[in-house]
Amino acid sequence: MNNVPSQYLPRFFVKQRFTMMVNRYEIVEALPDGSAGRVFAIAQQKRMAMKEQVTFFADEARTQPLFSFKARQMMDLAAIYDVTAADGTPLGAFQKDFKASLMRSSFHLFGPNLEAYGQERNATTAILRRFINFPFSFHFDFTDKATGAPVLSSERQFSLRDRYTVTVPDQRVDFRLAAAVAVGMDALMQR
């Protein structure tokens, strides 16, 4: 877990673990055969925080920060979340599209030379999961606003514990930005 991953990864997994006071996320390497490899980042989200901030660490003891995301405003339904490297270098941002999310969760994604929009692929599943507490499988697809090309997808597996497969076909998307968006979407949907 000590090695920092390259800045681009075409695919990885996000696993959520529940604890009493925090949501814990593990970012896991996806091996070529589709199985899970090593854990290379760990993050925790405090529940009921006034201003959302999540830091990703390289180690279990949470002593070596890698990157983070933080809300610009407190308690804003359409807050912008800035993603930064451990040294404070901006990597990009994401924002929930509150109005569109009333029917189908939707997000804006901003990165260097990139603006993308993503939403749940299946409108029926989006509506059902708002009323039924069931471990639905669902997909988010982000496309480049200028070209319509796929940028990022996050697929929640059908299981009791949250597990996502994140695929990043666009090499402009820094791995750290993709991981922050995947965890941020889960946190913002209050999963």
Rank of each mutant, 00 (worst) to 15 (best):
D76Q: 06
D82P: 02
D59S: 00
L66I: 13
A61C: 03
D87H: 02
F57S: 10
S68H: 15
F67M: 06
T84E: 14
P65A: 08
T63F: 03
R62Y: 10
M48L: 14
K70M: 12
L66F: 05
Q64G: 07
R72T: 10
R47W: 07
G88C: 09
D87R: 08
G88V: 06
A86T: 09
R62I: 10
D87M: 08
R47Q: 10
P65E: 03
I80R: 12
Q73N: 15
D76H: 10
D59T: 06
A85G: 09
E60I: 09
M75I: 11
L77F: 14
D76Y: 02
I80S: 10
D59G: 04
A61I: 04
G88P: 00
A58P: 01
R47H: 04
V54P: 01
Y81G: 00
D82K: 06
A79E: 07
D87K: 03
F56Q: 04
Q53C: 11
R62C: 10
A86W: 08
A78S: 15
L77V: 14
D76W: 03
M74Y: 15
Q64F: 11
V83R: 03
M50N: 01
E60A: 12
V83A: 04
D87N: 12
F57V: 07
P65R: 05
A49Y: 05
Q64L: 12
E52C: 04
A49T: 08
P65Q: 00
M74D: 11
A79H: 09
E52W: 06
M75G: 05
E60G: 04
A58M: 12
A79M: 04
Y81K: 01
E60L: 10
R62N: 11
D82W: 02
K70S: 13
F69Q: 03
R47S: 09
A86E: 13
F57H: 11
A71F: 01
